[in-house]
Design a protein around this nucleic acid. Structure first.
Lengths: 191, 191
DNA sequence: GCCTAACGATACCGATCGGTATCGTTAGGA
DNA sequence: TCCTAACGATACCGATCGGTATCGTTAGGC
């Protein structure tokens, strides 16, 4: 191989640092987590972290990028379980319902970071915007196959519903989030 | 009067400080705003601010309390414009649509602060939780009068929709948020 | 017009922030 | 086995954080 020396060791340090940072950022908020905390929790030296991520903002953006990848991978898995477009939506609702009912769930990382950083040009905001745009596009495509009368509108409505589920703080419900979502989505794609 | 001396001057300083803090907290995020910035922007001395609000967290909570009051006052005004329960919901949708399309809108303050503060016992989180609970209750009451088949479920769905509209970062839409919401709500309260 | 409560200004506190410079150590490909 | 790149550790940087102590000034009810 003509790859740089110590590629695996370097990649491992990067991955460990990013994983730790992601966990802390998500559960405590980006502003509430100092770099020293990431060092202490990950065991990776601060120098090393800054060698892989020039600034804290880059680290935050990388966190959202990874979240984004994981999100679509789970989304695709959910969609794959549907035999019809309507089934795909139902499966997505079930997935989201389970997701938000998970212990320790603290909302959509993209939305949370967007709330923390006011500057729309912040790297994290750019990732978040792309994420939400892609969700809308994917929903439009599914709604089209559902023969919804106005797929763009239906998709938009479903996106609002999903975002609401992702952000809703309360979890005071005795209701099953998944079925509540599925029922709403069914009504929204009806002609 | 046996009220404390200089009541009005004191109250005015308090109000000015809180208004300035609220504006900064909302547009920049609570963590991003230092107390010094509030002093500089409001012209109120730091000593005075701390005389009215023992800690920054108290100031943040007061911000959300005031937001909460304003919110319900606007909500009530919107509801008053509806002649039927369905009309009340439509009016609410219009109000929210206008609200989120306003320049400088940066999401629901309650949701944003909940994203910033991980501790569920943080004073801001407690206010936010109460806020969302009350919204759900008010929606249930309206949905009941709409003779929705399952008012609790419909109300929950509408709440998700509203929260989605409040949190949705993008605003990429050429769509009118108000009518998109109204159409969705109509479908959700149908039997 | 005086008394007092609340004001504003300033200077300061220790802690922590994001980020860097230095240097000895370790691991892995040639 | 040796060379070198990337590692970890430590000490440090100026800036800023939330919060306090001190003190002179101002305004408003009696």
């Amino acid at each position: 191989m003509n790859m740089p020396v110590a590629q695996t060791r370097s990649a491992k340090a990067r991955r460990t640092a990013l994983e730790t940072a992601s966990r802390l950022f998500y559960h405590q908020g980006a502003h509430a987590v100092g770099m020293e905390a990431i060092v202490a929790e990950s065991g990776i030296a601060k120098t090393t972290i800054y060698r892989h991520f020039p600034t804290k903002d880059d680290l935050i953006a990388a966190f959202l990028e990874e979240e984004n990848r994981d999100f679509w991978s789970q989304w695709d898995a959910a969609v794959a379980q549907g035999r019809t477009p309507e089934g795909e939506l139902a499966s997505l609702c079930r997935w989201i319902g389970d997701k938000v009912d998970t212990e320790g769930y603290r909302g959509c990382p993209q939305i949370n970071m967007a709330a923390e950083f006011a500057d729309r040009q912040h790297p994290a905001r750019i990732v978040a915007r792309r994420h939400k745009k892609e969700m809308l596009e994917r929903l439009v495509e599914i709604c089209r196959r559902c023969n919804a009368s106005t797929p763009e509108i239906a998709a938009h409505q479903i996106a609002l519903l999903f975002d609401g589920a992702f952000s809703s703080d309360g979890r005071l419900e005795g209701l099953q989030a998944g079925s509540v979502l599925a029922d709403a989505v069914t009504r929204l794609v009806e002609p």
